[in-house]
Design a protein around this nucleic acid. Structure first.
Lengths: 195, 195
DNA sequence: CTATATTTTGAGCGGATGTTCAAAATCAAG
DNA sequence: CTTGATTTTGAACATCCGCTCAAAATATAG
């Protein structure tokens, strides 16, 4: 051993994630990244291999943070369904002004990546699938606790929630109308509880 | 008058629209466009001013085609609600393999455009708002014909439908599971009719 | 301190990008 | 056919892109 890296890898990845989330993959140049993480190109490429490699780690970082927020909201809430509702409200509305984009970073990635980057594409699909799985798992808990009817299809309900979360985030970016989104959110969960 | 343009403007815009829809704004190079519409750069810039100008016309073309499909499906259907359902099914599922992308071109634009192109951004928002207005108008007709309860909030229902359509298109791109989307669609419209 | 292994630096490469513009081609009018 | 306005052409420009690599800096081991 002779010299040791001076940067904190997690902090670098997180800064890159925030920039990628804000501007997207294509619109973020390697020079933008160099400035954001305060590293020279040689160091970045030694650490991450390529712009795509760094983006891949940024995606992981994004998903992990989202997963932690979900877990936290569910554990703080009175019930699984309320935890889910609070998570979605927190991500879309409450954190709106402290976050680089209204959109989901995974959806953004899905929008601009094509088959020339098959690894990023399949990673993104896998991470989105994990969100659906997490939603479904929490809905299973809701069902066990009698918050959902015994016959409810939690897998389909999880898909439905993911679809609506994706749609609401996009809608908020387009409409800049958080109140409308709050109404939609309440109506969605009122519908789920009513069954 | 001396010389007259040899290209058909509408056909050029449509070809550009299909390419932009497939690859997005940033990933579509002007050379890609030159090949797709079989025009040299000078002619393109004389006709459209810039890549952004051509994209703007492509957005209009996309929205007009979508609007025509909606109108056609509604006029063919037994009822407004069925027309809406058939439109969404047609756009997301049936036309899946004859169209350049599962995603809505407007949503794609929203994903990759930022404030450095404010005109494209506001145009996109306006066009999305018109979709919501169209949905709401058709839901009003459904209400007049007794297909919806008199107390139903058609504006919010229209928003809800747009949110879910955006979400389902994104979900289909990620999951490649049209059957799941069909189930979601049926469940959405069953819920609407039940109220 | 010296020797050695590792990291950091930044100038620069090859190529792609959006756009321009002078020259050539085209076609209606006279 | 000649004239002249208009369109078409494509080479070329300035800039930016992702990325490389030899040289300099750094820190540990002996």
């Amino acid at each position: 051993m002779a010299n040791v890296a001076k940067y904190d890898r997690d902090s670098v990845v997180r800064k890159a994630m925030l920039l990628f989330w804000e501007k997207g993959f294509n619109a973020t140049s390697t020079r933008d990244l160099q400035q954001a993480v305060d590293m020279r190109p040689g160091s970045i490429y030694a650490a991450f291999g390529s712009k795509e490699g760094l983006y891949s780690e940024a995606l992981k970082c994004y998903s992990q943070e989202m997963g932690e927020i979900l877990q936290q909201r569910v554990s703080e809430a009175d019930s699984p369904l309320t935890g889910l509702e609070n998570f979605i409200r927190n991500v879309i509305i409450e954190r709106r002004n402290v976050v680089p984009s209204e959109l989901c970073m995974l959806v953004r990635t899905l929008s601009e990546i094509d088959d020339t980057q098959p690894e990023l594409m399949s990673q993104t699909k896998t991470l989105l699938r994990k969100v659906e799985d997490n939603f479904t798992r929490i809905l299973d808990q809701a069902q066990e606790q009698g918050e959902l009817a015994p016959g409810a299809n939690t897998r389909m309900l999880g898909r439905h929630l993911q679809v609506q979360m994706i749609g609401m985030r996009t809608y908020l970016k387009a409409s800049q109308n958080p109140q409308a989104v709050e109404e939609l959110l309440q109506s969605i969960f009122a519908g789920i509880r009513a069954r």
